[in-house]
Design a protein around this nucleic acid. Structure first.
Length: 825
RNA sequence: GCGGAUAUGGUGGAAUUGGUAGACACGCUGGAUUUAGGUUCCAGUGGCUUUAGCUGUAAGAGUUCGAGUCUCUUUAUCCGCACCA
């Protein structure tokens, strides 16, 4: 290491000493800047595969480099895993802690539409800002592994993987009603629609029929649920994913269609139900207005005009209007009936928009006695309500609880589970149905009508259909265009680049057109953690060796908002690669945690429109990176929402100044028993609390320990060294500086983590609380692990206790060693 | 409605997992240093009350020698999903 860097430009330690002898306060600005430069020069955080060392892969979600710069939310997550990464590094692990940029996306494109500045230009500029900001916080990323997803060297592999999906038939084009944002002029995945509004711009989402590329994530639905057992994800992430996938077990049953007299039309209506056991309570059926059999059966209906009017009305409604509807509407399909296959009863059929076309079969059997929605509908249309489960009172509302079956023929007397089995068996034996599992999860809409995304590497040939471009032609780079405005008709801006669009078919050589839709911004982030393992590889997305060594991600932290988006998508993507044999493990992340949001001081969400956004640069500038880092960790429990406050920022700022000031009292001196005890207790506490992500209490341990040191007239060097090591994950600049001032020539970030000794951490004397009937009456000081009768004797000799015992006989004495004596009288 | 969480001083939050509630910090009060403000340092700080005591962890009940912690009931707040049959 170049010594003049360490010594603030001075040639020797002695020279430098003169400089800091006159400083009273900690100059965080020059100090932090100095060490950031030294770390960078020394490549202090660079990692390579090392078969002799155990690896640890810590990952945080890489940011989208928006024009606004780093948000205060980012550092909370990044610092947390930085603390963990730094500690693991000091514990001897080979730590991979990488950072990159998720650089494709709508904001850059919208900005381009507004200003004419090419997304590639603004994105690179933003990446520069982000990089500078991230470095200013002193995060220990291995910057040599940094990449961004809009780099052709990267998206070459995103395209390559898409071709694999295509090859295996998991990428398919389908014309379907998709979520369309009229403001962004782009199709959205279900996961991107929030309460009927576009997740990004807030405009109301409408339905639009479009040809879209889809990825068959539903094929992985079961494994995406079941494999959650193999990983250590926090509960709310697991349950949210399970909820989103929405697996339900039930049955599909066919109901014969008849005319009014009961003569079969030779057609069937299939329903999905989770409760086939309630079939004897079915009093009518409902099909979604868009259901294909409604149009197909039109000739049989007596009230066609009325039916058509309802269908048209439904089509005009957005999803939001449809679900906002409190009271149920619908129209009976007059002229036909359905025959209940369980009891032969003829029942009416309705269309109603409370039945969704996209779930199950788009048709239901209604059991108004035991389903509130059916009950509401039945009341409005004066339909019979037949109770088939014993219990409850159905005069006011549906009974949705459990009860044994009544009015149910062969199911009478059975419990729920038995009756479901029996009902399905009956359907199977009589050939009108079978068990069926359904999911709320839909396939992933993978096309976007945008410019700033990965081009989909397929061409359409009149003769050969959709053809993949040869792998040798990857990456298929984005053409340079100047008009980024999407069309109202829903075609991508890329359609205007006619030179690029027109090409030849790789199979037959005839004229062909390229796909002009691009991939969604979730594409690049679906596998980026694999690329970090081997980011400069131009032969493969990552070598087998690198993947075998580094994967899995040991600890992944990120926002809850990505639970049903990025996290689900990337697990799916990874499983697909696993099935193809490209990655060694079926799940990418061993452990997933999630940080709480940071709210503004008024408890509101921080947002540009509210004008309460805080720029991390300002905080770093006023308080320094270390104070900012420690503040982010001290603000509250990591997984909970926290409120920003300048006061507590002041608190940690003072703390850092205190640690700095202690330096003048450091001397060469042996440790007292008390010193040893305090030191080891602190080591144990901080170590344990970092591992458990209890960063706020880890910091308070450091503060308590520092207070102990502050009360000593002379501080033995070992105590101070230990403090520096323990504080280094939180405040690496300060730790590095003081380490150097102790005359050390190594980097503290490469030092080893102190080992705590639980025996030494124990105090020699303990304070034991003395209670009478569970009420505190005083405390006694006694040596640790003292004999029971000695403790009891000491307790009884307390004035307060003796007074009470003079009037009452002790019935029982409970002694908890080193903790409490409770005398029951 | 379903799923997940949370509830402790003026504030953010601790509590070795059933054993001295309020660690650590912020704020506040008083004092010292300072020309003053800020900084820094010392003391105090849950409530009520006369030293001694009583009371206190959203509300109510229960288990226990002992409950912030366990069980049941209720309430409030936050987050996610939501006509998913």
């Amino acid at each position: 290491m170049c010594q003049t860097d360490r010594y603030n430009g001075k040639s020797s330690f002695e020279e430098w000493k003169k400089e800091w002898a006159i400083e009273e306060r900690y100059n965080f600005k020059t100090t932090e800047h100095k060490w950031q430069k030294i770390w960078e020069k020394e490549k202090a955080y660079k990692v390579e595969i090392d078969a002799n060392k155990e690896k640890f892969y810590a990952l945080v979600e890489f940011p989208y480099p928006s024009g606004a710069g780093l948000h205060v939310g980012h550092p909370r997550s990044y610092t947390a895993l930085d603390v963990i990464a730094r500690k693991k590094r000091m514990e001897g692990f080979n730590v991979l802690y990488p950072m990159g940029f998720d650089a494709f996306g709508l904001p850059a494109e919208n900005y381009a539409v507004k200003t004419g500045i090419h997304p590639a230009v603004s994105t690179l500029k933003n990446i520069e800002t982000f990089t500078r900001q991230l470095k200013s916080i002193g995060l220990s990323f291995d910057w040599d592994r940094c990449f961004n997803t809009c780099d052709p060297e990267y998206y070459k592999w995103t395209q390559w993987m898409f071709l694999k999906f295509f090859e295996k038939g998991l990428a398919y084009k389908s014309k379907m009603a998709i979520n369309w944002c009229p403001s962004c002029k782009v199709g959205l995945a279900n996961e991107e629609v929030v309460n009927g509004h576009c997740e990004r711009c807030g405009a109301e989402v409408i339905r639009k029929d479009k040809e879209q590329w889809m990825l068959a994530i539903t094929k992985y639905a079961d494994r995406l649920i079941d494999d959650l057992d193999k990983v250590d994800f926090i509960e709310r992430v697991k349950s949210q994913q399970i909820n989103w996938i929405g697996r339900s077990h039930g049955a599909e049953l066919d109901f014969d269609l008849t005319d009014n007299s009961g003569t079969s039309l030779g057609k069937k209506l299939r329903v999905y139900t989770t409760r086939p056991d309630t079939a004897f309570g079915v009093t009518y059926m409902v099909v979604a207005p868009e259901h294909s059999s409604v149009a197909a059966l039109m000739e049989y209906f007596e009230n066609r005009t009325e039916i058509q009017a309802y269908i048209d009305e439904t089509a005009r409604k957005s999803d939001l209007q449809r679900t906002a509807n409190d009271s149920k509407t619908g129209v009976e399909l007059k002229g036909i009936k359905a025959k209940n296959p369980y009891n032969g009863q003829l029942i009416p059929i309705f269309i109603s928009d409370y039945v969704l076309t996209g779930y199950g079969t788009g048709a239901i059997m209604a059991v108004p006695a035991h389903d509130q929605r059916d009950y509401d509908f039945a009341k409005i249309f004066h339909l019979p309500i037949i109770q088939v489960l014993d219990g409850g009172d159905i005069s006011e509302k549906a009974f949705e609880g459990d009860g044994s079956h009544i009015n149910s023929g062969f199911l009478d007397g059975m419990s729920k589970d038995d009756a479901i089995k029996a009902a399905i068996n009956y359907a199977r034996q009589h050939g009108f149905g079978d068990a069926k599992t359904n999911y709320k999860l839909r396939d992933w809409v993978f096309s976007r009508q945008r410019y700033w995304g990965e081009p989909i590497p397929l061409v359409y040939c009149e003769h050969c259909g959709w053809q993949p471009i040869p792998e040798s032609e990857l990456p298929l780079t984005l053409p340079d265009i100047s008009d980024f405005q999407p069309d109202n008709d829903g075609s991508s801006p890329l359609a205007k680049a006619t030179d690029w669009v027109n090409t030849t078919c790789p199979k037959c050589g005839a004229h062909a057109r390229r796909e002009t839709d691009t991939m969604p911004n979730w594409a690049g982030s679906s596998w980026y953690f694999l690329r970090y393992c081997d980011p400069h590889n131009d032969k493969e997305f990552a070598s087998k060796e690198a993947l075998n060594y580094w994967m899995n991600v040991d600890w992944y932290n990120g926002g809850m908002e990505h639970t049903t988006l990025h996290l689900l998508y990337s697990r799916f993507w990874h499983k697909f690669l696993y099935d193809c044999g490209y990655v060694p493990t079926p799940e990418p992340y061993n452990k997933r945690t999630s940080h709480g949001m940071i709210l503004a001081e008024d408890g509101e969400k921080m947002s540009k429109s509210r004008g309460n956004v805080i720029n991390p640069d300002e905080v770093v500038d006023t308080y320094g990176a270390d104070a900012f880092r420690m503040y982010e960790m001290f603000i509250g429990p990591f997984e909970q929402t926290a409120m920003r406050s300048d006061e507590s920022l002041n608190g940690v700022y003072r703390f850092i100044g205190k640690v700095y000031a202690l330096f003048t009292k450091v001397v060469q001196k042996n440790l007292s028993t008390k010193d040893l005890q305090m030191m080891h207790a602190c080591i144990l506490e901080v170590s344990e609390r970092i591992d458990q992500m209890k960063f706020n209490t880890a910091v308070s341990s450091l503060m308590s320990y520092t207070n102990y040191l502050a009360n000593l007239s002379e501080i033995p060097e070992e105590l101070y060294e230990t403090l520096l090591k323990l504080i280094s994950p939180f405040a690496p600049h300060l730790a590095e500086e003081m380490w150097a001032r102790l005359g050390k020539t190594t980097l503290i970030v490469k030092e080893s983590w102190p080992r705590g000794d639980a025996e030494l951490a124990k105090e020699n004397t303990v304070t034991i609380a003395v209670q009478i009937n569970g009420k505190m009456r005083g405390t006694i000081e006694i040596e640790r692990d003292a004999a029971q009768d000695k403790v009891i004797a000491a307790a009884k000799s307390l004035d307060n206790v003796a007074k009470q015992l003079s009037v009452a006989e002790p019935k029982k004495v409970i002694v908890v060693p080193n903790r409490i004596v409770n005398i029951v009288v």
